[in-house]
C-alpha cells in the first residue's frame, strides 16, 4: 500500500470549482541513476493516477520519469454534492495507493 495525502477545501458552494491537491510518496526512479556499486537503478515510478468524485472520473493522469520524486498534482473539480473525493494510483510494480477526503458542499 503506497502512501499519499489529499487536501480539499473545508467547504465549497455548489457549482463552484474547487482545488484538489495530491501528494504521493514515491521515489520515482528514472532509471538513469546508478547506485554506489555502479549498478544502474531500475525505473520505479507511479505511472497512473485517477480521481473520482460524485460518480465521475474528474481527473486522471499518466506519469513518466519526468515527474519529481513524491509527485504532487493539483487540479479542479466542480462541486455537486457533499461526498467523498477519492484518488487512486498505481506504480509500475503493481503496488497501489488510495486516499479519500470528505467534501462539504453548501
Amino acid at each position: 500500500m503506497l502512501l499519499g495525502r489529499i487536501q480539499v477545501p473545508p467547504s465549497v458552494r455548489r457549482g463552484e470549482a474547487f482545488e484538489v491537491r495530491i501528494l504521493v510518496e514515491h521515489p520515482m526512479e528514472t532509471g538513469f541513476r546508478r547506485d554506489m556499486n555502479g549498478q544502474s537503478i531500475p525505473v520505479y515510478i507511479v505511472n497512473k493516477l485517477s480521481c473520482r468524485y460524485a460518480g465521475y472520473e474528474v481527473f486522471s493522469a499518466e506519469l513518466g520519469t519526468g515527474m519529481s520524486a513524491n509527485p504532487y498534482m493539483a487540479f479542479f473539480a466542480v462541486a455537486e454534492s457533499s461526498g467523498e473525493v477519492a484518488v487512486e494510483w498505481s506504480d509500475d510494480r503493481g503496488a497501489t495507493g488510495r486516499v479519500t477526503a470528505m467534501l462539504n458542499v453548501t
Partner: peptide
C-alpha cells in the same frame, strides 16, 4: 524521455488548471 505527463480533464473539472512539479 520528453513526455513528462499526460493529464485527462473533462467537463466536471470546471477549470483547466493544473499544478505539478517536474524534473
Amino acid at each position: 524521455r520528453p513526455l513528462i505527463a499526460t493529464f485527462h480533464l473533462g467537463p466536471h473539472s470546471g477549470r483547466a488548471e493544473i499544478s505539478t512539479r517536474v524534473r
